[in-house]
Simulated assay, not measured.
Amino acid sequence: MLHEVSFKSFNERDDVQGWIYVPATEPCGIIQLVHGFGEHSRRYFHMIVNFMEAGYIVAADDHVGHGKTAMVNDTWGDWGDKGFRTMMEDEHTLTTLVKEMYPNLPYFMFGHSMGSFIARDYITKYGDELTGVTLCGTSGVFPHVEEGIDLLEKEVAAGHGEDPATEAPNVVMGWMFDRCDEEIKLGNEWICTDPCVQYDHAHDPFDAFTKPTTNRSFLYFCQMITAITGADWAKNVPTELPIFNIAGDQDPVGQYGEGVYQVSNWLTESGHAVETKLYPGYRHEIHNYEDLKDEVVEDIICFFDAQLDFDDDDDDEE
Rank of each mutant, 00 (worst) to 15 (best):
Q262D: 14
P280S: 05
L278F: 05
N265V: 12
V274G: 09
H272G: 01
G254L: 09
Y282P: 06
N265L: 13
V263E: 11
P252G: 08
D249F: 01
V263K: 11
L278G: 03
L241Y: 05
V263M: 14
G271M: 07
L267R: 11
N265Y: 14
P252V: 05
Y261T: 13
P280Q: 03
P242I: 05
N265C: 10
Q262Y: 12
L241Q: 03
P280L: 03
Q250S: 14
V253A: 14
V274A: 11
N245V: 07
V253P: 02
W266M: 02
S264F: 10
D249R: 01
S270P: 09
F244S: 06
Y256T: 07
T276E: 12
L241T: 07
Y279I: 01
D249Q: 00
T276H: 07
G271N: 07
K277V: 14
G254C: 02
P280N: 07
G281C: 00
E269C: 13
Y282E: 08
L278H: 02
K277F: 15
S264Q: 10
L267P: 04
N265Q: 14
G259Q: 10
V263T: 13
V274Y: 09
E258I: 10
E258W: 09
Y282D: 05
N245G: 08
D249P: 01
T268M: 14
T276F: 10
P242L: 07
V274M: 12
S264D: 10
Y282V: 01
Q262C: 04
Q250P: 07
A273Q: 15
